[in-house]
Amino acid sequence: MMENEKLVEVQHLQQYFPVAGSKLFEKKVVKAVDDVSFFINRGETLGLVGESGCGKTTTGRTLLRLYEPTAGKIFYSGKDITHVNMLPYRRKMQIVFQDPYASLDPRMTVGDIVGEAIDIHHLAKNAQERRDRIIELLSLVGLNSEHANRYPHEFSGGQRQRVGIARALAVNPEFIVCDEPISALDVSIQAQVVNMFEDLQERMGLTYLFIAHNLSVVKHISNRIGVMYLGKLVELADSYELTFHSVHPYTRSLISAIPIADPEVNRATHRIVLEGDVPSPVNPPSGCRFRTRCPYADECCAQSEPEWKEVSPGHFAACHHLDRVK
């Protein structure tokens, strides 16, 4: 791994979506991502976890400018890419989607799906070169040349996800956003795909933003993990630090809620069961957004938003009561 070169960085990223209000002509906004800042070093994997609707997928997509950010800045390799033409950057930044059943065009052969990116970026001089490249990509993800002429419906979920990965790799990217790439797969297949992501990273020096709701998998694959709640980053730390020494009450309850596949550990775990549901992002609670479900919440939490501070080197958290949680 190269020494701490920031490959991707976002500063105070905001992504608001307009929604219809309850009254006629009333406009409201969903603050899907609200003031999120982080960076990813070259060659590392940053995991992003959180419950559905917390904005982790939106963060990933806004980062690639698949959505235009409402505010904030995105840097790639030190250059501000918030308002530039993205075409040259699409060769460096790619995405693998969650649902391999929905993200592949059913009317294109696998060869054409993978080849489309090669065509767009003019990466092959002639048909033969294009074909060789497609076969090379397919073998990279554990498929073979005869698969190139088949259609997506002929593949199993795990194989389709491999096609999705081959498509992302077609342009030789440096950075890939993996948006829940394994949650639609069977348990026995998940490990295969996770291992493949690791192998590819090692071979091609890739940098990942790995988005998932399964903390066990995220911890396995990531160097650092960020935890999101209602559009905000609440804690960010090295993956071991985060799983064993988390300081934010939300992270703690999230970790304690994960069922461990070990009966004895499971019986010994003291669950911090959170009351209630995640509030609506249209009308989030004032101050700290977690306060409605937080066991430590008091008036201070309702009045002001907690600051994003460094608890220990490289370990960030946003909470008013960090001393009490300890």
Binding site: V187, Q190, S216, F244, D262
Partner: peptide, 16 residues
């Protein structure tokens, strides 16, 4: 084949 949250070291998963 499933990653264990309580593991202290990074072990490669053994897939089926």
């Amino acid at each position: 084949s499933i990653p264990n949250l309580n593991e202290k070291e990074h072990k490669r998963l053994i897939p089926i």
